[in-house]
Amino acid sequence: MFPSSAARTAASRLATRVLVSSSSRAPSVAAASVAQQPSLMAVRYFASVSANEYVMSTFLPPAEVQERILTVVKNFDKVDPTKVTATSKFSEDLGLDSLDAVEMVMAIEDEFAIEIPDAEADRIASVSDAVEYVAGHPMAK
């Protein structure tokens, strides 16, 4: 049962009296909670998800990430831009050696303003690996 409008008005007056009477003293917890209005805030949940929800768990859209990574790879000076595809492997398809692959990962780090740990960077051997890693990274911009 909901309170009547008279009860709501009485409660509002009581809250006003509490605020007015406590204004000369240090504010109490009750007065502070009455004075503040609840604010809207965004909540991001960091939890494991099922395979069906994988697309929902990414932080940047995979299509945008793929487009930006393809641009980075095509602009790399030791890569022939005509050979770059979404499934290109750095060493096999693009002819990059291990040092060039490290430089490629560094260029991707710069593009998305993230830092990829060495252990993770060693696992990134293709454009699709890079897209998967960056799309799931919470700090990628």
Rank of each mutant, 00 (worst) to 15 (best):
Y54K: 07
V55Q: 08
M56F: 05
M56Q: 11
S57I: 02
T58V: 13
F59M: 02
L60D: 01
L60Q: 08
P62S: 01
A63E: 13
V65T: 11
Q66P: 02
Q66W: 00
Q66S: 12
E67Y: 06
I69M: 07
I69V: 11
I69P: 06
I69Q: 05
I69N: 03
T71F: 06
V72K: 04
K74T: 00
K74L: 00
N75A: 10
N75P: 04
N75G: 05
N75H: 06
N75R: 09
N75C: 03
F76H: 05
F76Q: 00
F76E: 00
D77L: 02
K78M: 14
K78H: 13
V79A: 04
D80H: 01
D80N: 13
T82N: 11
K83M: 12
K83G: 04
K83A: 12
V84H: 03
V84L: 02
V84P: 03
T85M: 06
A86I: 02
A86H: 07
A86F: 00
T87I: 10
K89V: 10
K89C: 12
K89P: 04
K89Y: 12
F90Q: 05
F90V: 08
S91A: 15
S91M: 13
E92N: 14
E92S: 15
E92W: 13
L94G: 01
L94K: 09
L94D: 05
G95Y: 11
G95P: 11
G95F: 10
L96T: 00
L96M: 15
D97Q: 07
S98K: 10
S98I: 07
S98E: 12
L99S: 11
L99W: 08
D100W: 03
D100C: 04
D100V: 02
A101V: 14
A101Q: 15
E103K: 14
E103H: 11
M104F: 06
M104G: 01
V105L: 06
M106G: 03
M106H: 06
M106A: 14
M106L: 15
M106Y: 08
I108R: 09
E109V: 07
E109A: 04
D110G: 14
D110K: 14
E111L: 04
E111M: 07
E111H: 03
E111F: 03
F112H: 05
F112D: 01
F112C: 02
F112T: 01
A113V: 11
A113R: 15
I114P: 04
I114C: 03
I114W: 09
E115A: 13
E115S: 14
E115D: 15
E115G: 10
I116R: 04
I116H: 05
I116G: 00
I116Q: 02
P117N: 06
P117G: 01
D118P: 08
D118C: 08
D118N: 14
D118T: 13
D118W: 08
A119Q: 15
A119Y: 14
E120W: 09
E120Y: 10
E120S: 15
A121S: 11
D122H: 13
D122E: 15
